[in-house]
Structures are given as C-alpha cells and as structure tokens.
C-alpha cells in the first residue's frame, strides 16, 4: 500500500504529467506487461517484469523468511507495518527525512519509507522487534530506558536502530561523533539529551570494543 501526501497536487493543471502520458502513449521498445509476473526477452536475455498489480515478495526479516502480496509501488515500511504487523518502524514524514522508519538492511541503517518492498528481496532486513528477546533488551535499548531517551516514543524505535548501527561502526564514539553520527533522526519531544547519554552508556556497556557486535 503505497503512500501519498493527501494534499492535492497542482490544482486545475491543464496538463498533468498523468494526462500527458495518457494522451501521447508510451514509446517503449519493450512494451508494458499487464499484471503479475511476466518474462520478457531483453537484449537476448530473459528478464522478469513484476506488477503493476500485486505480486508475491519474499523478504528475509529478522532471520526469518516472510512473504507478502504487494504491488511494486508498496514501500518496505508499509509492507512491514500493514502486511506483516511489524509496527515498530513508524511512518512519520514518509519522505526520507525524519528517521522514524529506520531499519537495517545488510546491517546499514535505511529509511524503510524510501525502499520498495520488492527491491528489498534478497537482503537481510533487521527491524527493532528483533533486538530484544524474552524481555531482555539490547544494550542500546536498555540505555534508552536508563537515560530516559524517549518521551512520546514515536521516534524511539527508529532512533534505537540508528544508534545500534552507529555503534556497530563506531564502537568508541566521542561526544562529537555522537552528535554528527545521528543526524538522520528527528525527535519532536526533544529527547536528544537522553539519546546522547544513552549512546555513551551503550558504548561503554560493550564488552569488546570494535569487535563483537551486539544483537
């Protein structure tokens, strides 16, 4: 389920790009296909074309194989939240700015609102739900609790994931590193003082600096 601003686009525009397309038709050497999964021959090779209707996507999420029926236009974030009930990542700006939707793909922090679900296949997706198990919090999560690095908590799961990724790459950060390394997450309640303290605590909590990875 793709998202969109629900403010209207240009009002009364005589020629929206959409109309333009309809009016002129497409000039494509490989024609569009209709629905589902199709195979076309491109430059002598078979290439699969997906959609525009729903197709099955297979995702490796938190070490588990998961699948969902979604349109190619559906983001990873919306697939996690709407199809797989993994609602830890939040939809806030939905335009790759605020970081509330942060998940890890192949250990790197990404904005899940700006990744197509179909494009995330074959990669390791880690969501906040996997960090704690049996009530045991990850050291970053525990540090967020201890330092009250949260208020309403809506930015928190994204921030936790960004901090985890940051510490995995910067196991012994300075205060300046922390300020510069977490610029991709925004909080409205103003929890940054707590977040800075939490990251510092979580860094100290690591048994072996630079080596083992938590979580």
């Amino acid at each position: 389920m793709s998202s969109s601003g629900d403010m209207p686009d240009k009002p009364n525009s005589g020629v929206s790009r959409r109309n333009f397309l309809r009016g002129t038709g497409l000039v494509l050497s490989v024609p569009l296909v209709a629905g589902g999964v199709n195979v076309v021959t491109v430059e002598g090779a078979a290439v699969q074309v997906y959609g525009p209707d729903k197709v099955q996507v297979s995702l490796n999420i938190n070490g588990q194989a998961r699948s969902a029926e979604v349109e190619p236009r559906t983001t990873l974030l919306d697939t996690l939240r709407n199809d797989l009930d993994l609602t830890g990542a939040k939809r806030v700006c939905d335009r790759g700015t605020c970081g509330a939707c942060t998940v890890l793909i192949d250990d790197k922090p990404v904005y899940a609102c700006s990744v197509l679900a179909i494009d995330a296949q074959g990669r390791r997706i880690t969501t906040v739900e996997s960090l704690s198990s049996n009530g045991n919090l990850h050291p970053v999560q525990q540090a967020f609790v201890d330092n009250d690095a949260q208020q309403c908590g809506f930015c928190t799961p994204g921030f936790v994931m960004a901090c985890k990724a940051f510490l995995d790459r910067n196991p012994n950060p300075t205060a300046a590193d922390i300020e510069r390394g977490l610029g991709g997450n925004l909080c409205r309640c103003g929890t940054y003082v707590g977040v800075r303290a939490a990251v510092a605590q979580a860094a100290k909590a690591r048994p072996q600096r630079g080596g083992r990875r938590n979580g």
Binding site: V128, L131, G135, Q141, G153
Partner: peptide, 20 residues
C-alpha cells in the same frame, strides 16, 4: 525510569497508527 520505556524501545508499544 519510565515504566513503559521497555515496550517503547522494543517497538512493542502500540500507538493508534500501529493498530491493525
């Protein structure tokens, strides 16, 4: 420490937006 902190950091806290 706030008592709902653990569920918030774990992504388990359900907001209206999260209700399916």
């Amino acid at each position: 420490s706030r008592i709902d902190g653990p569920e918030k950091v774990a992504g388990r806290a359900k907001y209206a937006y999260d209700i399916n």
